[in-house]
Design a protein around this nucleic acid. Structure first.
Length: 490
RNA sequence: GAGCCGUUAGCUCAGCAGGUAGAGCAUCUGACUUUUAAUCAGGUGGUCACAGGUUCGAUUCCUGUACGGCUCACCA
């Protein structure tokens, strides 16, 4: 139902009055010569005397209004900032003066005039003509406290962006982060590709998918949980370096660092192993931080993070030994299981040794990894697409990196042995049958691709939302996603 | 999924040990031709989230529901 109140009613009546006066409250076009940013730059040295050389035309939203009888001041906001305008009866065209008397805070107007500096030193446009460009009928939040309510800010991001310039700044930085990464990869001969979002078989990660249905094909489809297997098909096809900024979907809980849809950069480089990918990762991210901040040391919440390469590197097992009194490798499977249960960690009972090791890592290590750290060499059971370590087949060549206690990326030397990969798929399929909702199905077409032969390849995934949180000092993933997932308003 | 907290005017917030509400800003009327949280005078504006219960009487106490926040769990 349409929401209304007295304030909106008043404004709707004003729209009618404006129309009755022969003015279109929603005209089609306007041509500004300047933005607020350009004016501040170009007229930095302006003095208190307006002159004809400083004529500008600008468009924006009225954010404040201070009327003084026959003169008035207002602030106009455009995408780059604000500038004050000064309307003075006797100085502005008669029609424009009448229009100005009808406009409200929130309206979008065009102003032509000359730039000068008021005696309090503020750069200001002395208006000589004004046009109404769009009449606002819904009042903006208050000028002083602005819009605070988080629910409203997330649901009505447009209002949040109008009222809170620092929010806009976060999203501009997000774009710059993506652009910096894209530029570096392009310069490094990576090719950006697009792969299916709707997939007949989901895979490439452990997660519950969203399911949908294609009517004409008469078949279920899944929204991708990862694009990994498609990018590796392209490596088979002869693209030696590919990447994609992939919107992925996982049907799981939401919290400070999980949103049901999120953005992951995945890249694959033929002939590289995970050691080379580690170097690529720390350089890619350190350079992104440098481009954004001019330094590789930044503040995140209460912590100073140092992205300067090389980052800490430690194996998963060693990190557990350092942070707990567990030494998984010195114990038999049964001894380890008993010790873990005695330590009060809940297990279902059917975990493999590798799964227990991953559990120990989560419990004792993950949230202690504040500075950028590579954790490498993972148990094979939790890594179905990574290549075994030559000297120890219980572990694979895989790393993840953690910053501020958060997992930000995942990488491995990609498994390219089709026989081994089939075996790993079969284990997943069997876990799926046992009720593991995050296991996945055998992807025969992917196996067929591997059977043609995939070069040795290193692959990497980076959580772009989480990286953005770190580089923009935001506590919640909802503050780096323009429209975070919310329950419907009642 | 669990615990705690929140929801009062367009916005930001008070308040009520139970007697159907108040401020600032915004808005409306008037005054004011360099203000910047402009100022001054006067006015309008509320299903106190929703539904039950207790009570002579509930915005206030109790229960439930919805939505949100934080923490934990789940989740790579």
């Amino acid at each position: 139902m349409e929401e209304s109140n007295d304030l909106m009613q008043q404004r709707k009546e004003k729209v009618n009055e404006i129309r009755d006066a022969g003015i279109n409250p929603y005209p089609h076009q306007y041509t500004p010569t300047h933005s607020t940013t350009l004016i501040h730059k170009e007229f930095e040295d302006a003095d208190e005397t307006p002159n004809e050389d400083s004529k500008v035309t600008i468009a924006g939203r009225i954010m404040t209004k201070r009327d003084h009888g026959k003169s008035s001041f207002a602030h106009l906001q455009d995408s780059g900032g604000q500038i004050q305008i000064y309307i003075r009866r006797g100085n502005v065209e008669q029609d424009s003066y009448q229009i100005y008397r009808k406009v409200d805070v929130g309206d979008i107007i065009g102003v032509s005039g000359t730039v000068f500096r008021t005696r309090t030193g503020e750069l200001t446009i002395l208006a000589d003509s004004i046009e109404l460009l769009s009449k606002s009928i819904r009042p903006l939040p208050e000028k002083w406290h602005g819009l605070q309510d988080k629910q409203t800010r997330y649901r009505q991001r447009y209002a949040d962006l109008i009222m809170n310039p620092e929010v806009k700044d976060v999203f501009i930085k997000r774009t710059k982060i993506v652009q910096a990464i894209r530029d570096m990869l392009n310069d490094d001969n990576f090719i950006e590709v697009e792969t299916p979002v709707l997939q007949p078989i989901y895979g490439g990660a452990s997660a519950r998918p969203f399911t949908t249905y294609h009517n004409t094909l008469d078949q279920p489809l899944y929204l991708r949980i990862a694009n990994e297997l498609y990018l590796k098909r392209l490596i088979v096809g002869g693209f030696d370096r590919v990447y994609e900024f992939s919107r992925d979907f996982r049907n799981e809980g939401m919290d400070r660092d999980h949103n049901p849809e999120f953005t992951m950069l995945e890249l694959y480089q033929a002939y590289a192993d995970y050691q080379e990918i580690m170097e690529l990762t720390e350089n890619l991210i350190a350079q992104t931080v440098e481009k954004l901040h001019g330094t590789t040391k930044i503040q995140y919440q209460e912590q100073e993070l140092d992205f300067t390469p090389p980052w800490n590197r430690i194996t998963m097992v060693e990190s557990i030994k350092q942070n707990s009194d567990f030494d998984p490798e010195s114990l038999s499977d049964d001894e380890l299981y008993t010790k873990v249960v005695n330590a009060g960690i809940e297990l279902a009972g059917d975990e493999s040794k590798g799964e227990i090791i991953a559990e120990l890592f989560d419990t004792f290590v993950e949230d202690k990894l504040i500075q950028p750290t590579f954790i490498y060499d993972y148990p094979i059971e939790v890594s179905p697409f990574a290549k075994k370590k030559p000297e120890n087949p219980e572990y694979v060549e895989r790393f993840e990196f953690f910053i501020s206690g958060m997992e930000v990326g995942n990488a491995f030397s990609e498994l390219n042995d089709p026989i081994d990969q089939r075996q790993r798929f079969l284990e997943q399929a069997s876990n799926l049958e046992k009720g593991d909702e995050e296991a996945f199905m055998v992807d025969e077409d992917y196996l067929r691709a591997l059977e043609y032969g995939m070069p040795p390849t290193g692959g990497l995934g980076i959580g772009i939302d989480r990286l953005t949180m770190l580089l923009t000092d935001q506590y919640s993933i909802r503050d780096v996603i323009l429209f975070p997932q919310m329950r419907p308003e009642s």
